[in-house]
Structures are given as structure tokens and as C-alpha cells.
Design a protein around this nucleic acid. Sequence first.
DNA 1: CGTTCGATGCACT
DNA 2: GTGCATCGAACGT
Length: 206
Amino acid sequence: MRTRRASKAGATLPRDFYDRPTLVVAEELLGKVLVHRTPGGTAGGMIVETEAYIGEDDPACHAAPGPTVRNAPLYGPPGVAYVYLNYGIHYLVNAVTEAEGRPAAVLIRALHPVDGARLMQKRRAPDGRAVADTELCRGPGNLTRALGITLTENLSDLGSGRLRIEDRGFARGEVAWGPRVGIRVGVERPWRCWIAGHPSVSGRAR
DNA sequence: CGTTCGATGCACT
DNA sequence: GTGCATCGAACGT
């Protein structure tokens, strides 16, 4: 794959991109750019770490208990955002995958800043404390805070909404796979993937 | 280095 | 009432 310099305008991904096996989407989202445009400014970063949550048979997937009010977006059309509040403190953002009626999604776990690093700084540390670029969007709770993503962005169309995923031609690099983190069930499924060695990947194993 | 633990809201049983 | 797809501060080694 060829690497290109980042451009301001990026093409969003067609719905067909998300309407595929979730593990394929999880890997191919690496290198793409998650961008949130708000009145306060634009912030976006290259996706460097994801996790797949697939179907009612996956005990860690929010669809495991069957359809509920909260997990309804998972059962809807692919290519939209599924945002929820975790631990009462952090918003986590997913991209819904696979055909409508098949509940699955890719959790975005880490980004590397591309646009609006200054705005991210302000959101992550209002007190003015310095946060390194590699820390700004390291971890699923940190990246939503840096991008200003809240429940308002739930069900946002990732192809045309204020929150979208763009292809800016960044190379994906070498991809590594391992177990998902932060869950107590379904740990045996190696459905986390990341750009090998990238400093913005969360956890210890890069 | 490492591990533990509190914060904090709400979906679900 | 219980248990989270987390984070960071506080402590121990």
C-alpha cells in the first residue's frame, strides 16, 4: 500500500465497507480517520486499535442478552455509530457492522491525532496540563473525551454525519491480533487488533 | 516498575 | 440491587 500525506478532505467509506464480516472491518478500519466536527472545532485521529464484538453468541457483546433498548443500534443498518456510557463516566464509540438484523460492531479503542490536537488538549486537560500526542486518544474513554463524543452521537451516520470515518490514504502497517481487554467473559476470542508497535495503542502490549 | 481501588450513571434482572 | 467493552491516583516492591 502507498502512503500519502494527509489531506483535509477525506472520502468517507461506503455502507458496503461495514456490511462485511466484523473481523475484516476491524482490521481495515486501522489507518482510517475518525473525525468529529463541532461548532467548537474539528478533531480527528487515525484509528490504531479496534475490537470486534460479534453476535448474540459472543458473551462480551452487548447483544448477548438479545435485543434491548440500549443495544438496538447493533441490530440496525451498518455504518452508523453505537455510543454508550460505560462505568457511568466514559462514552465508548463503535461502528456497527454486518447486515441489518445481525448485531455486531467494532469498538474504536485508540487513535493517533491528525486534526485538532490543540482542541483535544483542551478537552482532555481543561486545567492546561500538557498531554502528550500519543496519550490524547489512547484508550476508548480518552478518545471520546478528546473528540467530544457523547450520547448525542449515538446512531450518527459515519458516512455523512458530524461524526464520520474517512480514508485519507494512511498506510495500515503491520497488524497484530490478541485478546480483547477489559472484559470478564469471552476473553478467549482474539478479536482485538492494532497497528504493531504504534505508540498510541492502549495497554502494555503494543 | 507493579497492583489495588474509588468515581459514577444507568441498563438490566 | 448488581455489574460493567475505563481511567488515573495512590500505594507497595
